[in-house]
Design a protein around this nucleic acid. Structure first.
Lengths: 209, 209
DNA sequence: TGTACATCAGTGAACGCGCGTTCACTGATGTAC
DNA sequence: TGTACATCAGTGAACGCGCGTTCACTGATGTAC
């Protein structure tokens, strides 16, 4: 019954990950201590080490959790865009609008991207984590590029555009927007950037109309 | 003679800052130890504390140094753009191209932005440092916005654009591009994003021609 | 249904190391008279 | 020009605390026969 029933420990593990995520987003990974996490979760340190053999395995768990959430949220969002509008360009534009609204509505003053917070960590910081991080970005790139190719069949762009770079631009603006939002303590930076990105995509495929 | 002659300690201080910058960009601030820095500089720990009363004063020193460098480099760059071309739009576009080339030519695999590396640090991490960070971004915003206003007098854009957001987009792409470049271990991400930004600016002001 | 054993989900105490910080002191250079 | 004092740019040793990690143990639940 290991894989089917919900075991007690799954809950604790999940709570550790959730608490750790909030802390790491606020103070960085190196700045977040295990003591701090277990105090909030309400277990002992040995309890923590039962679930994660060391701190970098916690990081790995966090990344996996984060990437899975991210994927689901994004898929739902762009699916909704397409449901409302069955043209690939306009569905995408609606998706971007929903995306911007999502960031505008997020509760905390500055939500953060775990990946970025890990990016400025120690270099040999577990190959696994870097690989996960990289896979996440590349998946995003592929999905957006495929979409641009679909759109281009219907709306051929006037000038040649590097679709991979244009796809990366979304992730770039998200990561950068979170950094700027944090620096300026202004959570409106990111949604505004996403809307500019939307304008850019629109201009490319429909000539600014 | 305190303010005129070059005192011996200025040199050591500068070396500490340079070594610390490289280390922090590679491993984050919390991940960089004072022991590590002094080993490379070749002084004792007390020597370090003679120059900086604590670690967060080191961070402040690094930010000041970084912002000053940043300002000089950027000014030179866009000045060169304007020298080559006395139209405000085309001068700016040339400046952006030079900017992209600068990032493409940088020696290390991934150069980094100190500011971003500090952004994912502890929240109450010295108000001074956050303020410096924020000032740097806002200065950049103002300079770009003023440029856009100059350009718009000659090339009125077809649709209304938020110049502040468009100005922020440059900094956003730089910060985000550094993060993505780090994650993907691909230093070509940032220059490509800057060139896309250049295309966007061009489209806005001259309608894609 | 009862007993024996295995696994799960932890506890509690101890560890050693590295970290940022302090403090009393010092040799070299600068300045006043 | 010589002497007295001040400042600069550090040294060397010690500190205590918090960190990640280990290890022997345990009570509750699950499984086999």
């Amino acid at each position: 019954m290991l894989e089917k029933s919900r075991r007690k420990g799954d809950d604790t593990r999940e709570r550790i990950l959730a608490v750790a995520e909030a802390a790491v987003l606020a103070k960085g990974f190196a700045g977040t201590s295990i003591d701090e996490i277990i105090a909030e979760v309400g277990i002992t340190k040995s309890g923590f080490f039962y679930h994660f053999k060391d701190k970098s395995e916690l990081a790995k768990g966090m990344m996996l959790r984060y990437l899975a959430q991210d994927r689901v949220v994004l898929d739902q969002l762009f699916q909704r865009g397409d449901d409302l509008n069955n043209d690939p360009l306009h569905g995408f534009l609606v998706g971007l609008k929903l995306f911007a609204e999502m960031f505008a509505d997020l509760p905390g003053a500055h939500p953060g991207c775990l990946a970025a917070s890990f990016a400025y960590q120690d270099q040999p910081f577990n190959r696994d984590i870097r690989a996960l991080n990289s896979d996440g970005i590349l998946a995003w790139r592929t999905r957006f590029r495929e979409r641009f190719e679909m759109i281009a069949e219907i709306y051929p762009p006037k000038q040649k555009v590097d679709f991979d770079a244009l796809a990366d631009m979304a992730a770039t603006l998200v990561e950068g927007g979170l950094v700027l939002g944090r620096m300026l303590n202004d959570s409106s930076v990111l949604p505004k950037q996403i809307l500019l990105y939307r304008d850019f995509v629109q201009m490319i495929f429909s000539g600014g109309k």
